[in-house]
Amino acid sequence: MARDEGGRGRDHKHEERDSEFVDRLVHINRVAKVVKGGRRFGFAALVVVGDQKGRVGFGHGKAREVPEAIRKATEAAKRGLVRVPLREGRTLHHDVNGRHGAGRVVLRAAPAGTGIIAGGPMRAVFESLGVHDVVAKSQGSSNPYNMIRATFDALGREDSPRSVAQRRNLKVSTIQSRRQGVEADASDS
């Protein structure tokens, strides 16, 4: 009896630890292998996982059954989480381009209240990441795998003022004041 309670407790803790992540199924691909007795179906799942606080990852899983493919993809996504710096916890610090293969994406920071303006797979990435305001455009390939990899390429190029200041041996306030000056000049012209 005590063993059952201990087992349930462990499972409950496992659920609590995993509950911090939000996972989104982006795409399922069904493939058929023709064999002597007919067709054998297999499934490939593409999943995006994030904590909605600046960490996000994606994974790919293949199996004979859909739930198993999703489970494998989710585990792969959790293993490959990356941290993305966000401005005020709601948008990107600067505009950035990304590419993977024939997939190209443009991500632009947006003012508060804009919302997530992005298509399909990119929307899943931003919702899992915790971004509230962003404008994104996919150019080139509409293949979900290439779009997601291009989006992650772009997010990997995202820099925060703190990391830029550290790299240049400057103060964060210096970089922020330069940014304010550039924004003011752009609005004047």
Rank of each mutant, 00 (worst) to 15 (best):
residue 79 R to P: 02
residue 51 D to W: 07
residue 118 A to P: 01
residue 128 S to Y: 03
residue 157 R to M: 05
residue 19 S to A: 04
residue 30 R to C: 00
residue 182 V to I: 14
residue 81 L to T: 11
residue 128 S to E: 06
residue 26 V to A: 09
residue 189 S to N: 06
residue 16 E to N: 03
residue 176 Q to A: 14
residue 172 V to F: 00
residue 88 E to I: 02
residue 88 E to D: 15
residue 68 E to C: 05
residue 105 V to F: 05
residue 166 Q to T: 08
residue 107 L to G: 05
residue 160 S to R: 00
residue 123 R to D: 03
residue 106 V to N: 13
residue 24 R to K: 12
residue 115 G to V: 09
residue 18 D to P: 00
residue 51 D to E: 07
residue 11 D to N: 12
residue 101 G to V: 00
residue 34 V to T: 14
residue 11 D to W: 05
residue 46 L to A: 00
residue 90 R to W: 02
residue 135 V to N: 01
residue 37 G to Y: 13
residue 188 D to C: 08
residue 148 I to N: 09
residue 77 A to T: 08
residue 15 E to W: 05
residue 3 R to S: 06
residue 44 A to R: 12
residue 171 K to R: 14
residue 32 A to I: 09
residue 154 A to K: 00
residue 2 A to V: 12
residue 146 N to P: 00
residue 101 G to I: 04
residue 183 E to L: 03
residue 105 V to W: 04
residue 22 V to N: 13
residue 66 V to P: 07
residue 149 R to D: 02
residue 79 R to V: 09
residue 27 H to N: 13
residue 180 Q to Y: 07
residue 41 F to L: 15
residue 1 M to W: 01
residue 96 V to N: 08
residue 111 P to M: 09
residue 74 T to I: 10
residue 94 H to K: 02
residue 29 N to W: 11
residue 133 D to P: 06
residue 64 R to H: 09
residue 103 G to E: 08
residue 128 S to G: 03
residue 49 V to P: 08
residue 61 G to N: 09
residue 33 K to Q: 14
residue 146 N to R: 05
residue 156 G to L: 09
residue 166 Q to A: 15
residue 143 N to T: 01
residue 106 V to F: 05
